[in-house]
Design a binder for these strands. Structure first.
Length: 794
DNA sequence: AGCGTGGTCA
């Protein structure tokens, strides 16, 4: 209790810094207060406040209590506090007024402290006190405090008060304990309209629109007539569950009850229609409002953003600024930012940020989160990071948004690091977090990390989502663990078309073409209709494993049997397939003839084909197109320069390297990762930083001796960038000497494996009698008995 | 006596 008292004084001093009021100060404050009140445009309040100040200046005529009420009503917490400390406060009423003032102004912690100070002073809290105290618990998100207060209520018998019970219902719902709210509601002896409304909105806090609507119907069966509160909540329930029909019914109720001029109902109705995906209905409703309030505008601006009409969203904001005297508030900005994000309109986004700063809206949790998202979508991660770093208050949503921003910009390492911080901060990841982070695990995660995230998926209950399950199947496959990917897939109770597409792609990635085809037949046998993505997986599988005839067969059946128009990705697969067959002319022809504009990825396929066929002219042609289309062309430059080098055209090779540096690109350093006893070992080319370096290099020299019989002499020179010491070989060797004989070795590499190492890996798999799996930037190579699943084309 | 419950757009 002593601690609570000390705390109270600290908190009080936050609000009221001075200890006493002088007459001069009073006059000053009066002037200040009066000016403020004039602005607030309330003549009645203005007169009252003036009277209150007079009362204070002239203690003879006093009604200090009345003055206190006036201060609290005007929101002058400082003055209220001064007065409170100076007046006798043996009366419950005085305390109640102060607590009310604190709660309505958001000083929840202080309100709770005053409540404890009150009980400590021996003043009995009454049925007027508790609704505020309970509301403060909700504001603090403190279930602990809430339950403490509740038990006190039961002890004093005040829990039968309908006001108090109603507050408890909504507070429990807000604190995530809808079952407590339900129990209270059921056990209430007398339920009024507010009780029903609290329950209806309580279900919405719990994210349960269905029960909210059931409650809404039941209240009518009990003879209660819904008021504006009930209607606003019911509309919220329709938005939550996307129930357009039900929403229209409630719209009828609005008309019947003549609530159309209620601005909050207007806002809710616009929101309901746009959340149900009918921005046109929302627009109609909006257009019929003669005097639009800021809420209606905000809902409309948000509705356009939500339904992917970013230009209309921006236009709506402009219209608001032009056609009305309304000014943007925080919600306006929060709603228009997704539109900037969708358009990638950095300039507009920045100007919104500017407005937020100028108007003093920051820091603001939701607004900052929207900014992080906008900058992330516009590719300005550094600003996202800056905003995130400066946030004084972060919610799980802000964390999720930052993770998603990293993932969107393919900064997977950063995403994983942030996710780790999130776990360390003891913020339980939710389904959104997991869905955002899984692609990063797929891109850079190890099998061990994959299993770790598997644990979080199970713990968070996110595994019941098919979306997340599919991402898990893909993640395991992308981490190199096809067995667990398969297992996870087999364990799925509900498999949608994406699940099947994923397992087909998973097998394609690992070069198991026949398996892919088998899954394709199986999905059709199970009655799942393939979609365009199914064929991307299937055709990729054909091209990766070189099933030429099957590839064309499926391409044709896609068009003629399944009536799916080929998209650019399908053409990409076919061009890969043609390239693999060495038919570069036909590949080029297909690019020219296809009805879609070729992308950098398409020219990349042609470039790969050119490389395999040693066709430098074609490679130059493809590269020229890539350089025009894409910004980051590190891979393209690297490939071209190595082709020139292989052909002995050194000057041109050097020229390409020069251009690359000129544009500010560095050749990506090759890096391979192998997992040994759950530890991740990372190797660069010629890396000597590993603690077992001597052992690894000794073993590698023995291996090299066995696989390159006549080149032995050369390697004495030991150039660090010689293929002999490429990162893949270091990783494989490290795996060989540190794991049990006969067990498979899994290595992942950030860039394409070079031909020399591919050849070496085949031989190593043969002489060591081990299965070696190497995942490079494109596919997984399963080396076994001197052969690779990619059949030497990648 | 006066202080009380539920609500929109994020």
């Amino acid at each position: 209790m002593a601690a609570a008292l000390v705390h109270t004084h600290l908190c009080v001093s936050k609000i009221s810094k001075r200890a006493s009021i002088t007459t001069a100060e009073l006059i000053y404050r009066e002037r200040q207060g009066l000016t403020k009140l004039r602005h607030s445009n309330s003549a009645a309040q203005f007169r009252k406040c003036r009277k209150a100040f007079k009362t204070l200046a002239n203690p003879g005529s006093l009604s200090l209590t009345r003055a206190l009420v006036t201060f609290v009503e005007a929101g002058y917490l400082e003055d209220a506090f001064h007065l409170f400390e100076k007046m006798p406060h043996s009366d419950t009423f005085v305390w109640n007024v102060l607590i009310k003032g604190l709660v309505t102004n958001g000083f929840y912690e202080e309100a709770i402290d005053i409540y404890y100070r009150m009980t400590f002073a021996g003043i009995r809290a009454d049925n007027f006190t508790y609704p505020f105290v309970i509301k403060a618990c909700a504001g603090l998100s403190s279930l602990f405090e809430g339950q403490k207060v509740h038990s006190k209520l039961v002890k004093t018998g005040l829990d039968v008060d309908v006001y108090t019970s109603n507050s408890l219902i909504s507070t429990y719902a807000k604190l995530g304990r809808i079952e407590f709210a339900e129990r209270l509601f059921v056990e209430m002896e007398f339920r009024d309209l507010v009780s029903w409304n609290s329950m209806i909105s309580g279900y919405i806090s719990a994210g349960d629109g269905w029960n909210s609507l059931i409650c809404f119907r039941e209240m009518q069966l009990f003879g209660m007539t819904p008021d504006r509160f009930s209607i606003i909540s019911a509309l919220g329930a329709c938005s939550l569950e996307c129930l357009l029909q039900k929403g229209k019914e409630i719209h009828c109720l609005i008309i019947k009850n003549e609530f159309e001029m209620d601005s909050m109902i207007q806002t809710s109705a616009i929101d309901m229609y746009s959340k149900c995906g009918r921005v046109d209905y929302a627009e109609k409703f909006f257009d019929c409002i003669p005097q639009r309030n800021i809420g209606a505008w905000n809902a409309m601006i948000g509705g356009y953003s939500l339904n992917n009409h970013p230009l209309q969203s921006l236009a709506c904001l402009k219209k608001m600024n032009m056609a009305s005297n309304l000014v943007s508030d925080t919600v306006t900005l929060i709603n228009v930012l997704p539109a900037c994000a969708q358009l990638g309109a950095l300039l507009q986004g920045k100007s919104v940020h500017g407005v937020a700063i100028r108007k003093g809206f920051l820091p603001h949790l939701a607004l900052e989160t929207a900014l992080i998202n906008m900058y992330g979508e516009c590719g300005r991660l550094n600003i996202s990071e800056l905003v995130f770093g400066q946030m004084t208050d972060k919610s799980l949503i802000s964390w999720n948004t930052m993770v998603a921003a990293y993932v969107k910009n393919e900064c997977h390492q950063e995403a994983l690091k942030l996710f780790q911080n999130l776990l360390n901060a003891n913020l339980g990841p939710d389904a959104v977090t997991i869905a955002s982070i899984l692609p990063s695990y797929a891109e850079v995660g190890s099998v061990r990390e994959g299993k770790q995230i598997h644990g979080y998926v199970a713990k968070s209950g996110a595994g019941s989502s098919t979306y997340i399950s599919n991402a898990m199947v893909y993640m395991y496959a992308k981490c190199g663990d096809l067995t667990n990917s398969q297992k996870y897939f087999d364990g799925l109770i509900f498999k949608d078309v994406v699940s099947w597409n994923t397992i087909i792609m998973a097998n394609a990635l690992h070069g198991f073409g026949e398996e892919s085809l088998r899954f394709f037949s199986e999905m059709q046998a199970k009655g799942v209709k393939p979609n365009a993505s199914t064929f991307v997986s299937l055709l990729s599988s054909c091209s990766i494993t070189g099933m030429f005839d099957e590839g064309w067969k499926y391409f044709h059946s896609m068009i003629w049997e399944f009536r799916i128009d080929p998209q650019i990705e399908h053409y990409g697969c076919m061009i890969d397939l043609l390239g693999r067959k060495g038919n570069t002319h036909f590949a080029q022809h297909l690019i020219e003839e296809m009805p879609l504009a070729p992308t950098a990825r398409i020219w990349g396929s042609l470039l790969t084909a050119a490389r395999r066929n040693g066709d430098i002219a074609l490679a130059e042609h493809a590269s020229a197109h890539i350089l025009k289309l894409r910004h980051d062309n590190t891979g393209c430059y690297a490939l071209l320069s190595s082709m020139y080098a292989e052909a002995g055209r050194w000057a041109e090779a050097e020229c390409v390297k020069h251009n690359m540096r000129k544009e500010g690109f560095e050749k990506t350093a090759g890096c391979s990762v192998v997992e040994i006893d759950g530890n991740i070992c990372r190797f660069f080319n010629g890396d000597r930083s590993h603690e077992e370096t001597e052992k690894i290099y000794d073993a590698l020299s023995v291996i090299s001796g066995k696989i390159t019989k006549f080149r032995q002499q050369e390697s004495v020179g030991k150039r660090a960038n010689s293929p002999e010491f490429h990162s893949v070989r270091l990783a494989i060797t490290s795996g060989l000497i540190s794991t049990a004989p006969g067990s498979p070795i899994l290595v992942r590499k950030n860039i394409r494996i070079c031909e020399n190492c591919h050849d070496a890996a085949k031989k190593i798999s043969d002489i060591s009698r081990r299965e070696i799996v190497v995942g490079d930037s494109k596919i997984f190579h399963h080396f076994k008995c001197g052969r690779c699943t990619c059949r030497d084309y990648w």
